[in-house]
Amino acid sequence: MGTMNPANRTLPLTRREYFWPPADELTEAAERIRARLGEWPRADVAWRICLTPPDEPGAGDLIVAVTGAADTVSRQDDSAAWLANGAGVIEAGAQGACLMLADKRYPLDSAGALAEDWLAALASFLDCGFEPPDALVLALAWRDGDETRGEDAWPVELTRFPRIPGLIAPPQQLFDACPARLGLYPVVPSAQWVERLLALGVKTVQLRVKDASPAQLAQDIAKSVAAGRRHDARVFINDHWREALAAGAYGVHLGQEDLDTADLDAIAAAGMRLGLSTHGYYEMLRALHFGPSYLAFGSIFPTATKTLATAPQGTARLARYVRLLNGKVALVAIGGIGLGTLEAVLATGVGGAAVVSAVTAATDPAAAVAELEAVFANQ
């Protein structure tokens, strides 16, 4: 993250109608907090935190409702109308808050009492470009006066972060750990690619097969797992956890949506490692609940290999994730990473970097691997 520009120390929140109705004390607190958070790209949406419902709520409005009030039923009816008009709703109580946005709910239980400045902090993190679920996580991790302590006001203690209630229990058996520094981590589409890269000395690889018949899929996974054993390498299988279990794979990599359907108990009991994709603070908290072997953060940069549901994270956010989680779980950066960007990615302290087209689209894959490995060696 870049150094603060002195000219930005007081930000023009007063001219951006961050609160409705206008709230001078909250705006002043938000200016204080925002000035200590550093330089971040502005949000694509001009969010407005509504302390009372506006006459015409719509997209960009986050309406705050206090739970436990006498008008709970009528407010639920109102919330449905606000959501239908494109607004978001934050139901806040003594122990946490729940964001409702479009057709999704993001409940969070605070690790302690909510800070008096949590709404000001929410406005500040929204201004830093974080999506509402992630900004709310950071706001609930905020403590009054954080902006006056030390050189870095950013929440960096995991014990202060909220938790997500209502998740299914994690597996009784813990997932086996993998090395904290997974290094170069190519993601490839076939067993032939897995065998080719392991022969070059790559020690971590992911097989991501798309549109294969069941027989071809099982064959590719079996070949990849066998190659991993021959080369004493870590072969992860993307998505297809049942087939990975049958083949005795080193590990599987799953997306957030897979957490609702995969048999995590069976994966853990088999001694397989689990990698989970995350795209921000809220998904990070959800993934950590299950005790994975590693977390992948992405997409760091724009990528043509898959459609992105969220904006690229960038290295400044990656550095924040690393500072929060380093030493607690292995971390991997993914998305748009190549030879020209790898050094900046590794400068964040992340221990692994997944690459796709930097290897599979290279004219000389062996030379590409050697060049990428050299960047790791120089860190």
Rank of each mutant, 00 (worst) to 15 (best):
Arg208Gln: 05
Ala212Arg: 08
Pro162Glu: 03
Leu167Trp: 13
Pro186Met: 15
Thr148Phe: 11
Ala177Phe: 09
Arg149Tyr: 12
Val209Pro: 04
Ala199Ser: 15
Pro179His: 00
Cys178Thr: 13
Tyr185Phe: 06
Leu158Cys: 07
Phe175Pro: 00
Ala169Leu: 13
Phe161Tyr: 09
Phe175Ala: 04
Leu207Ile: 12
Pro155Tyr: 00
Leu197Cys: 05
Trp193Gly: 10
Leu184Val: 01
Ala169Arg: 14
Gly201Gln: 05
Ile164Cys: 09
Ala153Leu: 05
Leu184Ile: 03
Trp142Tyr: 03
Gln206Met: 09
Gly150Trp: 04
Gly166Met: 11
Glu157Gly: 04
Pro162Ile: 09
Ile164Leu: 13
Trp142His: 01
Glu147Tyr: 06
Gly145Trp: 03
Ala212His: 07
Leu158Gln: 05
Ala153Met: 04
Pro162Gly: 05
Leu207Met: 09
Trp193Glu: 07
Glu151Trp: 07
Ser190Ile: 01
Gln192Ala: 15
Ala212Asp: 04
Pro165Asn: 03
Gly183Gln: 00
Leu167Thr: 12
Pro189His: 14
Lys203Trp: 10
Ala191Asp: 04
Gln173Asp: 08
Trp142Ala: 02
Leu207Gly: 10
Lys210Thr: 07
Gly150Glu: 06
Pro155Thr: 00
Leu207Gln: 06
Arg160Thr: 06
Arg143Asp: 03
Leu200Arg: 06
Val209Gln: 11
Asp211Gly: 11
Thr204Lys: 07
Leu184Lys: 00
Gly145Lys: 02
Leu167Asp: 10
Pro186Asp: 07
Glu157Ala: 14
Pro170Gln: 02
Gln192Glu: 15
Val194Asp: 01
Arg208Asn: 06
Ile168Lys: 15
Asp152Arg: 02
Ala212Pro: 05
Lys210Leu: 08
Asp144Gly: 02
Gly150Cys: 05
Arg181Ile: 03
Ser190Pro: 01
Leu207Ala: 10
Gln172Ser: 15
Leu158Pro: 09
Ala153Cys: 08
Pro162His: 08
Leu174Met: 11
Trp142Val: 00
Arg149Phe: 14
Thr159Asn: 13
Cys178Lys: 09
Thr159Glu: 13
Ala212Leu: 08
Trp193Arg: 12
Val202Ser: 09
Gln173Ala: 14
Pro189Thr: 11
Gly145Glu: 01
Leu167His: 13
Glu157Arg: 12
Ala180Trp: 02
Lys203Ser: 12
Val205Leu: 08
Val156Pro: 05
Gly150Asn: 04
Asp146Cys: 04
Gln172Tyr: 10
Ser190Glu: 01
Lys203Pro: 08
Arg160Ser: 11
Pro186Thr: 13
Thr204Trp: 00
Asp211Ser: 15
Ala169Ser: 15
Pro171Asp: 03
Asp146Tyr: 06
Gln173Lys: 14
Asp176Val: 12
Gly145Ala: 06
Arg181Tyr: 01
Thr159Ile: 11
Ala169Tyr: 08
Ala177Val: 10
Arg163Tyr: 08
Thr159Phe: 13
Leu198Ser: 13
Pro162Ser: 07
Pro165Met: 07
Ala177Ile: 12
Pro162Met: 11
Pro165Arg: 08
Leu174Gln: 13
Asp176Asn: 12
Val156Ile: 12
